[in-house]
């Protein structure tokens, strides 16, 4: 498994898609000057722009790396040689996942470092009303990374059953979009207005999807980072546990499906 993880990591670093996506990191250089356009909240805007850019890069990486890793192996018939080695399909899937997850963490570390530098420059040039809460910025980057690692697990699950590129890529994007709003839908369903407007069947269907789809808004700590709001330790712990359980379930389902798949 570690062996697969190592060559997955090597493959990503040598991949042109990765190199292209990482080219976007150049945009960090423009953040302090772009943030200065806001006049008053320069530091807050630089935090927003930095976290959003990291988020965008990580989303692209999660979708393309997660969705294409297993699919490409099957499509290009690499699986014939890999799966005939003394390696279980579960180990292969976990190795591929861990390789991408480790890469996402390394990328977050690098981008996070560059982002913090950009924020620091902005905060020195335009001191904010409230001091920057670095721990919140760090937590926001870390939890954002966990969110995209979870998304990688979604894309890998879809790739284990898919025969084409479309399901893993578009399925992951749809899951990302839906997962980002499920909490809002859930909150709305529990308002008095929704009780009158939504039929019980629709409500049940919405609740079903709320529990089925990942709740990605739980990983969003941008507001805490931007406005230097204190973090809720128990909330962070719950989200971390949610990440572990949900990702494990996705990977277990992926391992079962890949185990049953025939490499014709």
């Amino acid at each position: 498994m570690l062996n697969i993880m190592a060559i997955s990591l090597k493959g990503i670093f040598r991949d042109r898609i990765f190199q292209g996506i990482m080219g976007l990191a150049v945009l960090f250089l423009f953040i302090p000057s772009a943030a200065s356009l806001s006049m008053r909240q320069v530091t807050e805007l630089s935090i927003t722009l930095s976290l959003s850019l990291i988020s965008f890069i990580m989303l692209l990486l999660a979708v393309f790396l997660g969705a294409t890793s297993i699919w490409k192996d099957i499509e290009r018939r690499y699986t014939y040689s890999i799966l005939s080695l003394p390696l279980s399909r579960t180990a292969y899937l976990l190795g591929r996942f861990l390789g991408i997850a480790l890469f996402m963490l390394l990328t977050a570390l690098f981008l996070g470092g560059v982002a913090m530098l950009a924020i620091k420059v902005a905060s020195v040039l335009y001191p904010p009303a409230r001091p920057v809460l670095w721990i919140a910025v760090l937590a926001s980057i870390l939890y954002g990374t966990l969110k995209y690692i979870l998304l990688v697990a979604v894309s890998m699950l879809l790739a284990t059953v898919s025969t084409s590129f479309f399901l893993p890529v578009f399925g992951t994007i749809c899951t990302y979009l839906a997962g980002s709003i499920t909490q809002q839908v859930y909150d709305y369903l529990h308002t008095p207005a929704a009780v009158k407007a939504i039929s019980p069947i629709m409500k049940q269907a919405a609740l079903f999807f709320y529990y089925l789809l990942p709740n990605l808004s739980a990983f969003d700590l941008k507001v805490n980072a931007i406005y230097a709001l204190p973090l809720n330790a128990s909330g962070l712990l719950m989200t971390a546990l949610y990440f572990i359980v949900y990702t494990s379930v996705l990977l277990a389902a992926g391992a079962i499906l890949l185990g049953r798949r025939e490499m014709k």
């Binding site: 060559i7 090597k10 493959g11 040598r14 991949d15 290009r76 018939r77 690499y78 014939y80 040689s81 005939s84």
Partner: peptide, 10 residues
């Protein structure tokens, strides 16, 4: 395997 293919970045 028949017409083998390996990770070509290696």
């Amino acid at each position: 395997p028949e017409n083998p293919a390996f990770y070509d970045y290696l």
